[in-house]
Write a protein that binds this DNA or RNA. Structure first.
Lengths: 184, 184
DNA sequence: ATTTGCATGTAATCTGTTACATGATTCA
DNA sequence: TGAATCATGTAACAGATTACATGCAAAT
C-alpha cells in the first residue's frame, strides 16, 4: 500500500498548534517562518484545510473583518493535536535526495570553458552570499537563545541551520573556484 | 505562460553527453553518480526518453543482449547537445526552498519533552554521521583532483559538496543538542 | 480614486512515486 | 533450477506550481 507522507498536513497542524489562524495567515507563515525548509502556496493550503476539516483535525469559526469580509479562523481539534504529535514523535529517516539544480550543473561543468565555469561559480557564490547576509540580519533579532519549551526555540534552531547551510555553500563554491583556477 | 524547468530532460542529456547508454544504465547513474543531488526512477526515465526522441534530442539503436533481449542504446543528437549547452549556460537563480522534513520537525520541537528532543536530535546526528562516513569512503577513490575539463571534475566537486553538507549537518545537530541540554 | 494587501477559492498542468506488468540473462 | 540482476514499459496516484477567478479593506 501507499505510504503517504502528508507533510503539508503536519506543517499546517504544527502551525495551528502554535496559534489559531486563517488560511491567509498560514500562507504568510510559510513565506516567513518556514521558508528556509518548507513552502506551500495558497492554492495548496486551502484545499488541504478543507480536507483537514473532513478528517476532523481542525475546525473553523467565521470572523467578520470590516463589514462583510468573512475570514475562516482555523484551530486544532484534539484529533488534530494527536495526529501532529504522532507525526512529530515518529521515526525520521534521512530523506534520499535534496534535489538541487545548481549542483546538477556543477556536476556537468566540465562541458563549460574554464571562463564560463568561473563566471557561473562566481554568480552562484554571490547569490549565496546575499542570502547569507539576509539570514544573518534576521539572526540579529534574537538577543539570546530562547528557552527550549517555547515556539521561538525551533525558530532559532532552524535559522541557525540556515545560516550554517549558507556558510557551507559559500565555502564550497570558493573551493570550487580555487580548483578551477589552479589549472589554467 | 508556463516556465517549465524540464530538469530531468537536461540531467539525461548531460549523462548521454558523457556517454551513450540505455535507460537502465541511466537509472543506475541516477542511483550512483547523481544520487546526492538528483534522483529519477525508471518509471520517469523511460517516458522522458520517448519524449526526447519525439523532440529530436536523442536517437537510439537496438542492441541484442544474449540471443533475443533488445536494449535501446540512446545517444545525443546535435539538437540534444545544443539544448543541453543552452540549459547549462543559462542563468541559474537560487532555488527557493530545499524542503526538509527533519528541519520542519526541529522547527516544531518545542512540543516535545526535553528527553524526546534529545533522542530525536541524537538519532538524526547518528544518521548524518553514517552518511558522512559513507561519503568520505567514496572520496578515497580520488587520489588527486581531476582536471577541470574531464567528467571526473564534476564528480569530484559534487562529492566534496556532499561531504561539506553532511559535516555542516552534523555540526548543526551537535549545536542543537548542546542548546537543548543547557536548560534542563 | 487608486493601489496594495487581505482573503478565498478552482482548474490545468507538471513532476515525481508506487504499484502493476512482463520477460531475458547471468551467476551460484 | 532458482535467485539476483538486466531490461522495458504503463497506470494510478500524490504532491506541488501556475494560472484563472473573485471581491473586500485599508492606506495613500
Amino acid at each position: 500500500m501507499y505510504d503517504l507522507m502528508r507533510t503539508l498536513k503536519y506543517a499546517i497542524l504544527g502551525l495551528l498548534n502554535q496559534k489559531s489562524m486563517t488560511g491567509y495567515e498560514l500562507m504568510k507563515q510559510f513565506e516567513s517562518a518556514l521558508c528556509e525548509f518548507w513552502s506551500a502556496k495558497h492554492s495548496q493550503i486551502y484545499p488541504e484545510l478543507k480536507r483537514l476539516v473532513d478528517e476532523g483535525c481542525v475546525v473553523y469559526e467565521i470572523e467578520i473583518s470590516g463589514t462583510v469580509l468573512e475570514k475562516k479562523v482555523y484551530r486544532l481539534t484534539e484529533k488534530g493535536r494527536q495526529d501532529f504529535h504522532a507525526w512529530l514523535s515518529a521515526e525520521t529517516k534521512l530523506e534520499p535526495t535534496p534535489k538541487n539544480v545548481a549542483r546538477l550543473k556543477i556536476f556537468f561543468c566540465s562541458s563549460l570553458s574554464a571562463e564560463e565555469r568561473d563566471a557561473f561559480l562566481k554568480d552562484q557564490l554571490a547569490q549565496h552570499e546575499a542570502r547569507l547576509a539576509h539570514l544573518l540580519h534576521n539572526q540579529e533579532s534574537f538577543s539570546s537563545v530562547p528557552a527550549p519549551d517555547t515556539d521561538a526555540f525551533g525558530d532559532y534552531l532552524v535559522l541557525m541551520g540556515a545560516v550554517m547551510r549558507e556558510e557551507m555553500n559559500c565555502a564550497w563554491l570558493k573551493k570550487c573556484l580555487l580548483l578551477n583556477q589552479s589549472e589554467p
